[in-house]
Design a protein around this nucleic acid. Sequence first.
RNA 1: GGAGAGAUGGCAGAGUGGUCGAUUGCAUCGGUCUUGAAAACCGACGUACUGAGAGGUACCGGGGGUUCGAAUCCCUCUCUCUCCGCCA
Length: 423
Amino acid sequence: MLLTKFITENKEEVIRRLAKKHFDGKEIIEKIIDLDLQRRTTQKELDALLAKANQLSKSIGALMQAGKKEEAQAAKQETAKYKEETKVLSAKMDEIEFLVRELLLQVPNLPQDCVPEGKSAEDNVIEKSEGSIPEFSFEPLAHWDLAKKYDLIDFELGVKISGAGFPVYKGKGAQLQRALINFFLDEARKNGYQEIMPPTVVNAASGYGTGQLPDKEGQMYHCPIDDLYLIPTAEVPVTNIYRDVILSEKELPIKNCAYTQCFRREAGSYGKDVRGLNRLHEFSKIEIVRIDTPEHSKVSHLEMLDHVEGLLKKLELPYRILRLCGGDMSFTAALCFDFEVFSSAQKRWLEVSSVSNFESYQANRLKCRYKNLEGKTELCHTLNGSALALPRIFAALLENNQTENGIKIPKALVPYCGFDEIN
RNA sequence: GGAGAGAUGGCAGAGUGGUCGAUUGCAUCGGUCUUGAAAACCGACGUACUGAGAGGUACCGGGGGUUCGAAUCCCUCUCUCUCCGCCA
């Protein structure tokens, strides 16, 4: 959520910046400002009224103690008239506050000025493209064929046990998964991230805290008996650690990482994008999360990009970094970079990470604040990114490193796998 | 699943109808003392909204009620803890 105060004080700027996200904020921003003005007026009236009533009540107490019963009785009758008025005004306050919140939730985060203009994924700007795309003397197999050939993943078995999108990893396939998880966690730790092992099931309050609720309700698995949700990303539990918390500036930046299974219903997706490992209902991901000061969050963002880039380099995968345009960014992000790796058999780039700065948008909803060195309480900035999501990395490793007799494991992973080739 | 207890400021823990937004201790911050530190002593120390400011208002798990007045009484919901049962 944006801050009402910021909107009021920077109306034109807000409307201008929202336009980059193709959000016409003119009407809604006017409404918010108008309602906020009403809120303030109403509150002034209400506060004045309550102040009078409180004063009177206090005097009744004093009169009673002094034994002046009749005067007290007269004062009691006077308070009756405040009651009705107070009720009306506080109902009005509640209504206005509810409306403002409803409207604020509909307004996306403001993109930073460095976010490129654009409508869709085609308008994203390629910041960097590194690593060489492998060439083959034979027709490379897609990862789903390789997985079958070397008995690494059984998709049909997953269908039997759970349903489509729940693969069963076997043998070296399972080992490679575990190796990747450990590799990513170790790399994160080496870069100063504290490892967290959070619950993978969260309550509704946490869902609201990070914004999965109410907007993306249908995308999460929900257990109605206990009203709990399966997390779509470790971002949810790890960020919610800081819900309703006031940190001190000295603690920042907080750098956490977590491996969890992630669960996504992916309602509405279909076609070639869901083939094999491209889109799953359950997958493994290592997430990095930072809580920072507004002054330092841009630096943090760059450090996170470096971290993710380092992982891809060590895995020797061809990758590129995209600066997302206004139209392709998520609702809550202020600036976002995607990492994609090239998948040699599918002959396309696969998104493996998305590293975003949410500035204070998420923190405002979470009520995650910090006390600065002057003792003033301010909203933190929050950032997060995948480092990394496993399935598409797995797919790219199989496809890019295939030979006619096996699949080569990149050097960095060999100590984690315990083998250097799958054959 | 059954029975009981509880929810108060960063933490611990008082407060059972009227200067209680809340005693006290610890923690934290500032100061005095000290070559420095510790100890001791003095002081500060919740959050939000509102107001130029003085100040005002709200908040003692959430919601509702009784009352002129509620942290305190009543109803209700949620959560936590203990014991029993079940169980990795």
